[in-house]
Design a protein around this nucleic acid. Structure first.
Length: 208
DNA sequence: ACGAGGATGCTCT
DNA sequence: GAGCATCCTCGTG
């Protein structure tokens, strides 16, 4: 079973939230079946002072002009809202804003194991043959679950995208870390978190 | 198993 | 014009 997560959960450092979201359930409202869901098995943290974070260059700019605005400004905003952006001109990527307002931070959801409304996952990704390939990547899970820019800046405690914590604690769930995927800056930081041994984790870096 | 390359659109990293 | 928090297909071993 699952229970709601309070807003205060997200007002903490991105690395902490990223780790604790592993094992939680992601729910997305769906027009025909009510909602689809998946258990989060992989996340990445992006933080203040982190050269790979979308807010990094804005942070530097804001040292001169505190009102400067640009890509990633949402990451400075109140925690617990979604931050969704298009990458490589094709895929929407889902993040949750973390850290107190004024401090940039966010968590990228990279992979889920389908757990509710799985037929929708299959419908949205008709070429896929294996269940573990339905949502084992940040672009794949948004396609599979029907997430796009309509879900941008929504409250994850009340909105169409929500997270729930398992009531049974994750004593049986081991979490591993690694460097982050697909970035060229900050590659040394071990800020990718994933469920050890899960076949639903994305490819690229060995899942141990 | 693994690597190369193309698709595609927004920001200025 | 370059670079990007990606994915898929097709080639080779």
């Amino acid at each position: 079973m699952f229970r709601d997560i309070p807003k205060s959960f997200y007002g903490r450092p991105a690395t902490v939230v990223a780790r604790e979201l592993i094992g939680c359930r992601l729910l997305v409202d769906h027009p025909s079946v009510g909602a689809v869901g998946g258990v989060v098995v992989e996340t990445e943290a992006y933080a203040s002072g982190d050269p790979a974070c979308h807010a990094w260059h804005l942070e530097k700019k804001r040292n001169k002009d505190p009102m400067a605005i640009g890509k990633g400004h949402e990451l400075f905003g109140p925690p617990g809202l979604t931050y969704i952006y298009l990458n490589y001109g094709m895929y929407w990527l889902l993040n949750v804003v973390t850290d107190p307002e004024g401090t940039p931070g966010g968590v990228l959801i990279r992979a889920v194991e389908p757990s509710l409304g799985e037929n929708i996952f299959w419908e949205n990704r008709p070429k896929i043959k294996k269940r573990e390939d339905l949502a084992n990547g940040p672009g794949k899970l948004t396609v599979a679950m029907g997430i796009d820019d309509r879900h941008h800046q929504m409250d994850v405690t009340t909105g169409p995208i929500r997270f729930e914590k398992p009531t049974r604690h994750k004593s049986d769930l081991e979490i591993s870390t690694s460097s982050r995927v697909g970035i060229s800056q900050g590659v040394d930081l071990p800020w990718r978190f994933f469920a050890k041994g899960s076949i639903y984790v994305s490819r690229g870096i060995p899942a141990r």
